[in-house]
Design a protein around this nucleic acid. Structure first.
Ligand code: FES
Ligand code: FES
Lengths: 140, 140
DNA sequence: CTGAACAGGACCAATGTAGTCCGCTATTTC
DNA sequence: GAAATAGCGGACTACATTGGTCCTGTTCAG
C-alpha cells in the first residue's frame, strides 16, 4: 500500500523538467545526478513517459528530455497512472472460487469508494503546483 | 498500491466470526475450509488479531476463535490497521540525502491528504456492515 | 565521421508477501 | 492423569514484484 519508488523518481524528474522547460533539453545524466537517481533506472522511467507523450526525448548531442505538456495541464493522477498504472487498492482474492458466494459483499463498494477518493485528491494537483527548488542542503 | 491478501483473508474471517458469534468458538479448520484460506496462514492472521484483542482464542477441545468486539464498534480502518499496519501511501525516497533540498516539496502534503481521505472512507464502515452469506454458489 | 545522447532488450539482486512445517503448550473430557 | 483436541510460535521455503544493471543498438549535431 505505497506508491513505488519509480513513482517518486518519475515525479521528481518531471518537477525538474518543468522548472527547466524553457532552457531546452536536459540530459538524463544531469537529472540523475541532481536528483540522485540511478541513471539506468531513470532512463527506463523517462522512456516510458516519452511513449505516453508526457516528455519528449531528443537524441544526439545537445539532446535530452523536455517536458512535452503544460505543467498546469497535467494532473498528478495522470502522471501516477502513466508511471504505475491505475491506482488499484483491492483485489478480491476469492474471485474464481467463491466471490459469488458473497452476493452482498460490500468490499467491492468500499474499496471502489476508496479509489475514487484517492483519484479526487490526485486530480486536484498539477505539475505546476510543485517546484523543484535548487537550494543547497541545510547541512552543507 | 493494493491491500494485501492477508487483509482480504483477515477481513473475511472476521465477517465469518461476526456471523457465528452467538454460537460459541469456531475452529480454525472450519473457517479455513469454508472460506478457502490456507489453514496455517490463516492461523497466523488470527493469532495476530488475537494479540490485538479483536478476537479471543480458546485452546483445547471445543476451543476455537470468537469475535471479541461488537461488530458495530470496530471500523474497517481499525481492522486494516491491525492486520497490515497503518495505511501508508507514500514514502519519500530522497529522505536521507536531499529531501531537505525540497523545502516546499508538496508531495508530503498531497499524499498525507490522500491517506486522510482513505482513512475517512474506511472509518465509515464497521464489521456490522458486512455480512457473510452462506448461500450456495450460483453455478452449482 | 565521430562522439554524445537516448532506446531497448536481457539480465540480476533485493525485498516483501504468501505459505508451510513442526514441535510445544494449554484445555477439556473421560 | 491420560489422551485427544486445538491454538502458539518460530524457522523455514517459494514466489512475485520491484528496483536496478549492462550492453548493444540508433540517431543526430558539429
Ligand atoms: S467476496 Fe469477492 S468482493 Fe467480497
Ligand atoms: S523530496 Fe522528500 S517529500 Fe518531497
Amino acid at each position: 500500500m505505497i506508491f513505488s519508488r519509480k513513482t517518486d523518481y518519475g515525479l521528481r524528474a518531471l518537477m525538474y523538467l518543468a522548472e527547466r522547460r524553457a532552457r531546452g533539453p536536459v540530459t538524463l545524466s544531469e537529472i540523475a545526478e541532481k536528483l540522485m537517481i540511478p541513471k539506468a533506472f531513470l532512463s527506463k522511467i523517462l522512456q516510458q513517459l516519452a511513449k505516453k507523450g508526457v516528455v519528449r526525448s531528443l537524441k544526439g548531442p545537445s539532446g535530452g528530455f523536455v517536458l512535452a505538456v503544460e505543467p498546469a495541464e497535467v494532473t498528478l493522477q495522470e502522471i501516477l497512472t502513466e508511471i504505475d498504472g491505475p491506482t488499484r487498492v483491492f483485489e478480491c482474492f476469492a474471485t474464481e472460487s467463491d466471490c459469488t458466494l458473497y452476493g452482498d459483499c460490500l468490499m467491492r463498494d468500499v474499496f471502489g469508494e476508496v479509489e475514487d477518493q484517492i483519484g479526487k485528491v490526485l486530480a486536484r494537483y498539477t505539475l505546476a503546483d510543485f517546484r523543484y527548488t535548487d537550494k543547497l542542503p541545510a547541512k552543507a
